[in-house]
Computed example of a mutant assay.
Amino acid sequence: MNDLEPTATVEEALRGNGISVESLSIDDHVSMTYLTAFPDVEPDHGEVGRAVTAFLELANDEALEPTTVDATILRSEGDVQATWRLEADWIRAYNRYEIDDVELSERVLDSIYEEGTA
């Protein structure tokens, strides 16, 4: 486990996975905003996956308790591309081998809400 405070530890893990963190707060859940490297209409699923991987690794290494993550993706400052969610229960189920990579990915991708869509 890292000696950094939880926010710094999470930010370091995200940046290590190529995620450009704009803001991050941790209380009963993680709320984060990051600037996408792919400012298209739809969010890049690979980039979302790298962010999810950071949280899975943190939980697996016991650097962060499995925590629900609410993420906002920005194309540029003030231009929201989409939001997505990773539930704490999904992380726990994944770590107990109750769901696999495909199931976890489907759950996260199903949570994506693209700005400007109904």
Rank of each mutant, 00 (worst) to 15 (best):
T68S: 15
T36Y: 05
V69S: 07
E22R: 15
S105E: 12
Y97I: 01
A13R: 12
P39Y: 06
N17W: 06
E77G: 06
L64D: 09
V30E: 07
Y94L: 10
L104P: 01
E87G: 02
V10F: 02
R85P: 02
A59C: 05
D70C: 00
I73N: 02
L58N: 04
W90K: 04
S25H: 04
Q81E: 07
Y97Q: 12
V69N: 03
P6G: 09
P43T: 02
L14N: 08
L64W: 06
D28S: 13
Y97E: 11
H29K: 09
D79T: 05
R50F: 14
Y97P: 00
E103V: 10
G46F: 07
Y34V: 00
E22K: 15
L64I: 08
L74W: 12
W90A: 14
N60K: 15
A51Q: 01
E62K: 14
E65M: 11
P66C: 07
T53M: 11
M32T: 11
E98Q: 15
E5Y: 10
E115R: 12
D79R: 03
N60T: 09
F38D: 13
A93I: 03
T9E: 12
E11F: 05
A59N: 05
T67C: 13
Q81C: 04
H45I: 13
Y94C: 08
L64G: 01
E62G: 07
N95W: 10
E12D: 14
D89S: 14
G78F: 03
H29D: 14
L4I: 05
A13D: 04
S111W: 02
T53K: 12
D28L: 09
E42P: 00
A51N: 05
I99F: 05
W90Y: 07
Y94E: 08
D44I: 04
A8E: 15
E22A: 15
D100P: 05
Q81A: 03
V52S: 08
N17L: 04
G16C: 08
D40E: 13
G49N: 11
A51G: 11
T36C: 04
P43G: 03
T53S: 13
S76N: 10
L104M: 09
V41K: 08
S111F: 04
T83H: 10
Y97R: 15
D27S: 15
E114P: 06
S76M: 09
P39D: 03
E47T: 10
V108N: 08
L86D: 06
V80F: 02
Y97K: 14
A82I: 07
F55R: 01
A59F: 00
D40V: 06
E47W: 04
E115C: 04
Q81H: 07
R107W: 00
A54N: 08
D27K: 14
I99Q: 06
I26K: 11
L4V: 05
D110L: 05
S25V: 09
W84Q: 00
T33E: 14
D44H: 13
E42G: 00
D101R: 12
V10A: 11
D70I: 00
A8V: 09
G78K: 02
L64Y: 03
H45S: 13
M32Y: 00
T67K: 12
A63F: 03
E114N: 09
R15M: 13
L58E: 01
E42A: 14
N17C: 09
R96D: 15
I99M: 06
T7F: 01
E103K: 13
T9G: 01
T53I: 08
D70P: 00
